[in-house]
Each structure stands twice: as structure tokens, then as C-alpha cells.
Amino acid sequence: MELKVKGWDINFVAKKIADDIPDGSYVNLGIGIPELVANHIPEGKEIIFHTENGLLGMGPSPEPSKADPELINAGKKCVTAIPGACYFHHADSFAMIRGGHIDYCVLGAFQVSQEGDLANWSTGEPNAIPAVGGAMDLVAGVKNIFVITQHVTKTGEPKIVKKCTYPLTGKNVVNKIYTNFAVMEVFDKKIFVKELAPDVTPEFLQSVTDAELHF
């Protein structure tokens, strides 16, 4: 089903997240769309990016000639280290995550439930190779979990649902959901709509959302 309503461009959604993260925060970005957030940090705001493979102070991609295969991010892409960066081993890196030291984590999603459950690591297909990485640690330990996603799937199915049908990454872990149609907060196991894209009405948003929305 092709929707006539387009909402915000996903880069604009990433910019909204970049605007909402306070100056001086420690932030972990998931692989893929969440990485867009790094491109939109406003001038003058200092955000320290953590990558779970052992770097605080991750900078942008290097020029190809300066790429170092031993300086990579969690997506195994070459990155740089900013002045003031530091390296550490995996147990320390996940102590930062699991010990509640990282302020914000931005993740993609297959589904988010109205109680804040997140499914983003497996579609549960019987033939798939299961691979979880650090997703379950991030949602269990980081103080604020933001989700960035298209509001519906490519085939028009709701991704914001009453109950996740895909295997969970964590239960009751999501704090805020940013989609091309709206910004929503999860509080007390309910979803509250905080902002709508210009061409989105409350009725339309509910019609493409399985979860019960509160306006």
C-alpha cells in the first residue's frame, strides 16, 4: 500500500533527535539509520559518541586514504577518533552501557509496542542466522532509549503495535519514538503523541498505528 502522506524526511527526523539530545551527553548510535543523527548535531553542542567495540569520542568517516581497519565502529566501518577520545576493552565498554553511564542510545526498530517493548534484532524466521550483537545490552543499560524508524513497513504494515510479534530485544525499554509521521513518548506503558508532521492528522496517525495512541 503506497501512502499519500509522506511526513518528514528521515534526515529531518534525525535532526530532531540531534536537537533533543542535551549538550555534553554520551551517546551510542545503532547501525544504519540511527547513524544519521551524527550528521545533524547543532554547532556549539558537544556530544561524545560511544561505539561498543571500544571507543569514546568517535568522529566521522576518514578519507579513504586514511582509513585504518583497526579503527572501526560497531558496524565495522572505518571511523576516526576526535581529540580527547579514548580506547578501552569490551568489558569496560559494556560496563559503560550496562552500568548506566551512557545517557542516550538511538536504535532502529522492526516493531515497538505500546508498553515500550522493542523488537529490532531478529525477524524470527526459522532459516535466519540469529545474531544479537550489543542490542540487548544497550536497551537494558542505557538511561534513555530513542527509536528512529519509518512509521510503517515498506508494505504499509504498522510498526508501532499493541504487542510485538517479532522476538523482543527488551521489555518496556523505549522512552521515545521518532518516525516520519510523529514524535511519541512512552510513559507508564502508554504512547503519548508529542508532535505531528505537517501533513499528518491524529486520525491518520491512528489509522496507520496498531497501538493505542494518546494525544
Binding site: H90, A91, G133
Partner: peptide, 13 residues
């Protein structure tokens, strides 16, 4: 395959 979340793997080691 024993699939282990990455932080749990690090802490187990």
C-alpha cells in the same frame, strides 16, 4: 551456536 549478547559475552569472559 550459543548466541550470547555482546556485553554478556564480554562479562562472562
Amino acid at each position: 551456536l550459543e548466541l550470547v549478547p555482546q556485553g554478556t559475552l564480554a562479562e562472562r569472559i
